[in-house]
């Protein structure tokens, strides 16, 4: 590989993920020929949306040099809140109140993580792993068994594609993805972005420069918790019911998606758009595994391999750079 290519990849690591995504789409398409029809497309994307949202939130934490292992539990907790607070006959008012409650609880959870990391100065892994048990416990307290049923109007609003014109409909989840990208583009053009990346890259230097490093770190946990709550909303609307263990399998994949998207696990470099791509890749891998009738243990194996590869990538890049000098 020549120098230019290495440099391009170094600066835009998600280009590699984009390539991987295309490969996954091609394989998926070969196994499922109606993949691009509105029905399956809508269904697939809707199922992927919670994971995408969680991954976007996780991106903030990872860029700042931390990791949030409690996102799954926060999702479970807020999912339980939404399912119990929105009865089948809920009005708009009730829905808004429930949503506000869930977001409030989510942010509180995020604040607790941020407090542990910035004030108590505990390791992010330790803090969020510990708090995840609290949030998981709260979820079970609120909703001991899967249950609850949301109003049909509400769920069908989310489930059905939005008819833009008589012969063109847009999956709601695609709109969400569009909004997420827009959100990231806006964010990359404000000072917060600079503070975030500086903090993750060299916190000491950032502090000397006058950046409130602790606030930045704190804020990333609020972001990850907030997006986990949005993920819970997407999940609750998608399934129409609640499950206190809904987030059990969401945490590790969120980290994997972030890494797949080209965000550096050590912090200081990254991209939420990449994380969206990463989550899509993981979703498609899940599809492929089930279509190809592979055993279900393949999925965690794939996750693990991706993490190991991600940890090795900086080293590989380093070797390439040495060789091209």
């Amino acid at each position: 590989m020549n120098n230019r290519a290495v440099q391009l990849l170094n600066r835009n690591p998600y280009l590699l993920s984009l390539l991987l995504l295309i490969i996954m789409v091609v394989i998926n398409r070969a196994l499922q020929d109606n993949l691009f029809e509105i029905g399956p497309l809508n269904g697939n994307l809707r199922v992927f949306t919670p994971a995408i949202l969680v991954a976007v939130g996780q991106t903030f934490v990872v860029i700042a040099g931390g990791v949030d292992l409690s996102v799954g539990a926060i999702l479970s907790m807020t999912n339980a809140i939404l399912a119990t607070q929105i009865p089948q006959d809920a009005t708009g008012d009730v829905f808004v109140r429930a949503l506000a409650l869930a977001i409030g609880a989510g942010l509180l959870a995020g604040a607790l993580n941020g407090f542990g990391v910035t004030v108590l100065r505990l390791q992010p892994i330790v803090t969020t792993y510990a708090t995840s048990f609290i949030f998981a416990g709260v979820a079970l307290r609120i909703l001991p068994e899967p249950g609850g049923r949301l109003p049909r109007e509400l769920t069908s609003f989310w489930r059905n594609p939005l008819a833009v014109s008589p012969d063109f409909a847009l999956p709601m989840s695609l709109i969400v993805i569009g909004l997420l990208i827009l959100f990231w583009v806006v964010l990359t053009n404000i000072r917060y972005r600079q503070n975030l990346f500086a903090t993750g890259s060299n916190a000491e230097a950032a502090y000397s420069t006058g950046i409130r490093v602790n606030w930045v770190k704190f804020s990333t946990y609020l972001f990850s918790a907030f997006f986990a709550t949005l993920a819970a909303l997407a999940l609750t609307l998608g399934t129409g019911t609640g499950n206190p263990r809904a987030g059990d399998q969401m945490t590790l994949p969120s980290v994997v998606a972030v890494v797949l998207g080209g965000t550096r696990l050590a912090g200081g470099q990254g991209n939420a758009v990449g994380s969206i791509i990463g989550a899509l890749i993981l979703g498609l891998i899940g599809n492929i595994i089930s279509f190809a009738n592979l055993d279900s243990w393949v999925r965690p194996l794939v996750d693990a391999l991706i993490i190991i590869a991600a940890l090795a990538i900086p080293g590989i890049f380093g070797v390439m750079r040495r060789l091209t000098r």
Partner: peptide, 17 residues
């Protein structure tokens, strides 16, 4: 007090862009 992952311009104007 430089941030290795940011550019020269980003570093110079960091926190007062």
């Amino acid at each position: 007090s430089l941030i290795p992952d940011l550019t020269v311009a980003e570093n110079i104007w960091l926190s007062h862009e």
